[in-house]
């Protein structure tokens, strides 16, 4: 009846953006009055923090602060298509589109300022809310630069799209180029198994994921932590049951989800193997974060108590039964020898 600990690991890979089809996303950018910026794109914030990520990208490209960037609402009548929220695609597809659109808008502004100052455009930089020309004393706030543009009849805007070079799969042997960016990862899980009840507690997960380039590391951690806990729910407790077509888990009293008591500490390690194709080098994290968790936990349970769970979820009953099965088998072996 002891509580036994064990560890397991698993690796993973994943493709970024839509699978085996051409993906695309567009964005419009405007450097706005006061040195702020406006971005319109069909982005769908589903909680991952993509709006903040896009604001960071636009800010970095334009030399202003993220809080000075306004991202317009997603509206098919008001924003260019950026397709859906899924497939670990938004940072990659829309992030790159926003960067390209912002660069265009910035180029328009820089051209006006460079001509005002009589310097080459490639000497003009934008940073910290200012426009300045290297090797000169020329410098002005971004807001003044926008006013200057407008006084010259220019609204600094940009529009860009980002698409992938991908193909479908051959219907016979499956060959094809489903993605242009891949990510890889690996997780280690440590568990404690109560051999009295069969309960499994996942105490720690060490998660390493290549994300290309982390725009917001805390946001990446949030995706990893959340993904691991979703996977842990599937690993240990969640089970949508259906009998003769009718669910027996019709509400959240029967469909059991992990609470704050049931979750491990997660240590995230972010790897950056930059994407060579997109302008930013970013890839993604949303989905791959949860891929290695379940096998890592099952391998850890095996390490702890020798019970191999191949049918999810590893409920206390199933784990205890597997422990007893193993004990029976080893007694049987001992008797035979």
């Amino acid at each position: 009846m002891a509580r036994r600990r064990g560890r397991g690991m698993a690796a993973c890979w994943y493709g970024i953006a839509r699978t085996a089809t051409v993906d695309r996303a567009a964005a419009w950018a405007e450097i706005d009055d006061g040195g702020t910026a406006k971005i319109a794109t069909g982005v769908t914030e589903i909680g991952e923090g993509i709006l903040t990520v896009l604001a960071q990208i636009a800010a970095e490209e334009l030399g202003i602060r993220p809080q000075d960037v306004t991202i317009g609402d997603n509206d098919t009548a008001r924003a260019p298509e950026a397709a859906h929220a899924g497939a670990t695609r938004q940072t990659y597809m829309i992030g790159n589109a926003v960067a390209l659109a912002a660069r265009q808008a910035r180029a328009q502004l820089v051209d006006v300022v460079a001509s005002q100052w009589g310097v080459a455009a490639n000497l003009v930089e934008t940073a910290n809310g200012e426009v300045f020309a290297r090797k000169t004393n020329h410098r002005m706030p971004m807001g003044d630069a926008v006013s200057l543009c407008k006084s010259r009849g220019v609204v600094p805007v940009g529009a860009a799209s980002f698409g992938t070079d991908t193909t479908g799969l051959d219907p016979v042997d499956g060959s094809g180029r489903p993605w242009q960016a891949y990510v890889f990862g690996c997780q280690v899980a440590e568990v404690e198994v109560d051999t009295l009840t069969g309960e499994v507690q996942v105490l720690g997960v060490w998660a390493v994921h290549d994300v290309g380039r982390a725009v917001n590391p805390r946001g990446v951690e949030g995706q990893i932590e959340g993904g691991i806990v979703q996977a842990l729910g599937q690993a240990l407790m969640e089970d949508y049951r259906i009998e003769n077509g009718r669910t027996t888990t019709p509400g959240l009293a029967k469909y059991i989800l992990p609470t704050a008591l049931d979750v491990p500490h997660v240590t995230s390690v972010i790897l950056e193997d930059r994407d060579p194709i997109g302008p930013l080098g970013v890839k993604g994290i949303g989905e791959p974060a949860m891929v290695p968790t379940i096998p890592a936990v099952m391998n850890a349970i095996y390490d702890a108590v020798g019970a191999r769970i191949t049918a999810l979820p590893a409920t206390p009953e199933r784990v205890l039964e597997a422990i007893k099965e193993r004990e029976r088998a080893s007694r049987h072996r001992a008797a035979a020898e």
């Binding site: 009840t197 240990l236 407790m237 009293a253 059991i256 609470t259 008591l261 409920t315 206390p316 009953e317």
Partner: peptide, 12 residues
Amino acid sequence: KVGHRRSLVIAT
């Protein structure tokens, strides 16, 4: 007590 989690759970 044992159930399928540690809070908001019906005892097996």
